[in-house]
C-alpha cells in the first residue's frame, strides 16, 4: 500500500525543466527550417526560368535536365517545408536533409572548381553578381542540416504510426 502511494506521488511530481527543452528546441527547429525553405521555394516557383539559368551556371548538369531540376527542386522544398508543419515532420526533415546534402555537395564542387557564380539559393531574381557562392553558404547549409537533425532526434508524434 505504501509503495503504491509513493508511486503515485512520484508521477504527480513536476517534471524537471530540461524535459521540456527537447520538444521546444525541436519545435523551433521545425519552424525555422520550414520558414527558410518556404522563403527559398517561393521565388523559384514564381520565376523558374531565372532559377534554371542559375542552375545552368553551375555547369554540373546536362542542359536538357536543367528545366526539370529547376522545377522539381522548389516543389520538393515546398512539400518538405509544409510537411515539417504536419505530423509527417520526420519525412519532411529527411527530404530537406537530402536536398541540403545535394546543395552542399554542389556548392563544395563549385568552390573547388573556382566558379564565380551566384548561389541562386533563394531564387535568381537578383543580379547575377548578387550572393556569390562562398564558404559561408557551406556553413549555412551545415547549420540547416543541424536543424533537420534536431527534428529527427525528437520523438515521433503519437498520431503517426
Amino acid at each position: 500500500m505504501t509503495s503504491a502511494v509513493s508511486h503515485v506521488s512520484e508521477d504527480m511530481s513536476p517534471k524537471p525543466s530540461h524535459s521540456r527543452l527537447g520538444p521546444t528546441l525541436a519545435w523551433l527547429a521545425r519552424l525555422s527550417l520550414a520558414g527558410v525553405f518556404l522563403a527559398a521555394a517561393a521565388p523559384k516557383l514564381a520565376d523558374p526560368a531565372a532559377f534554371a539559368a542559375a542552375i545552368a551556371n553551375y555547369q554540373a548538369f546536362p542542359d536538357v535536365s536543367v528545366n526539370l531540376i529547376a522545377t522539381l527542386v522548389p516543389t520538393l522544398e515546398l512539400i518538405g517545408a509544409l510537411a515539417l508543419l504536419t505530423p509527417w515532420r520526420r519525412g519532411g526533415a529527411l527530404l530537406l536533409a537530402g536536398l541540403l546534402l545535394g546543395f552542399t555537395a554542389l556548392l563544395a564542387v563549385s568552390l573547388a572548381r573556382g566558379l564565380d557564380l551566384s548561389c541562386g539559393c533563394f531564387g535568381a531574381s537578383a543580379s547575377e553578381t548578387a550572393d556569390p557562392v562562398s564558404a559561408l553558404h557551406l556553413l549555412r547549409n551545415l547549420g540547416l542540416l543541424a536543424l533537420a537533425a534536431l527534428v529527427l532526434a525528437a520523438p515521433r508524434p503519437a498520431s503517426v504510426r
Binding site: P74, G80, W88, G91, L94
Partner: peptide, 13 residues
C-alpha cells in the same frame, strides 16, 4: 513518409 513526400513533390513539380 520520405518516399510519399518525394513522389508528391515530383508530381507537383
Amino acid at each position: 513518409e520520405l518516399l510519399i513526400l518525394t513522389a508528391l513533390g515530383a508530381l507537383v513539380g
